[in-house]
């Protein structure tokens, strides 16, 4: 076979193949009639249109049910949230793996940006400066005493501080209250907050985009890059475990 292939002239090969394929030429007397088949096409097209219409109707009905019935809407919202969370987690893990050289060195609040610096004092009057924590993983949680969901996160943040504090990670709660330290100190004691708490001044608030919503949590890597950003309460399973996984690295 190899010999036949190498010794065959391309023209001969072409003729040889053409000769074989000529056997497939349909009988010239056979003329397929378009007019015989055209009438059968219209009903198939109509059936196709009806099928498309049915599917569109079903999709609209399903969307209506999903939207207007509270239970299904809640389920759909949960599913959507889970999908978004899973996608974001994968993206964030991937971005966290990017080599430093390819990472953008831009100060901002998007994933991969360098977190804006801020400075403040903790409850005991010790200075807290974000840039001085380079080389350590930082969980930065913006919160307020009047914010109900922020309270829900406190045990999770305590847990992260307990588990990862000894290995160098820092959990910092930045309060945006404008009531002063007294109310915050009482709240910290009452809620048994065991991580560093500091108070945001105007410069900090401005640097972090005004902080329109709390809670907001950022996970900042050892180079100061934001690798996780969550606006809203952290979920017990997904978010906490994702942050814990990254803190373990």
């Amino acid at each position: 076979m190899a010999n036949s292939e190498t010794t065959t002239n391309p023209n001969d090969l072409g003729h040889w193949v053409d000769d074989r394929l000529d056997a497939l030429t349909p009988d010239p007397d056979w003329q397929p009639m378009a007019s015989a088949h055209l009438p059968s096409v219209a009903p198939r097209q109509a059936a196709d249109r009806r099928r498309r219409l049915r599917w569109t109707g079903a999709a609209i009905a399903a969307a209506t049910v999903l939207w207007f019935v509270p239970i299904t809407r809640a389920i759909a919202a949960r599913c959507l949230e889970a999908c978004v969370s899973a996608t974001t987690s994968v993206t964030q893990l991937w971005r966290a793996d990017e080599p430093e050289a390819s990472a953008p060195r831009v100060v901002g609040l998007s994933i991969g940006d360098i977190a804006p610096d801020f400075a403040g004092l903790d409850r005991t009057g010790q200075p807290v400066r974000l840039s001085s924590l380079r080389g350590r993983m930082v969980v930065l949680n913006f919160w307020a005493t009047w914010c109900g969901p922020c309270k829900v996160e406190i045990p999770m943040l305590n847990d992260l501080q307990t588990r990862f504090g000894p290995s160098g990670a820092a959990v910092i709660g930045v309060s945006i209250d404008d009531t002063g330290w007294q109310a915050i100190s009482e709240f910290v004691t009452e809620q048994d907050i065991r991580y560093t708490v500091t108070l945001a001044d105007d410069a900090t608030t401005q640097a972090f985009g005004g902080i329109g919503e709390v809670p907001m949590t950022l996970l900042i890597d050892r180079d100061g890059r934001i690798i996780v950003k969550r606006i809203g309460v952290l979920t017990e399973g997904g978010d906490r475990e994702q942050i814990a996984r990254l803190l373990e690295r």
Binding site: L21, L24, P32, A34
Partner: peptide, 23 residues
């Protein structure tokens, strides 16, 4: 559609008939 069908059906069917034995 009808014009395209009418113009090309016979040739398309003959191409198919090269491969498929049953007309």
């Amino acid at each position: 559609f009808d014009a395209i069908f009418t113009a090309h059906f016979a040739r398309v069917a003959r191409v198919v008939a090269r491969v498929v034995r049953d007309r």
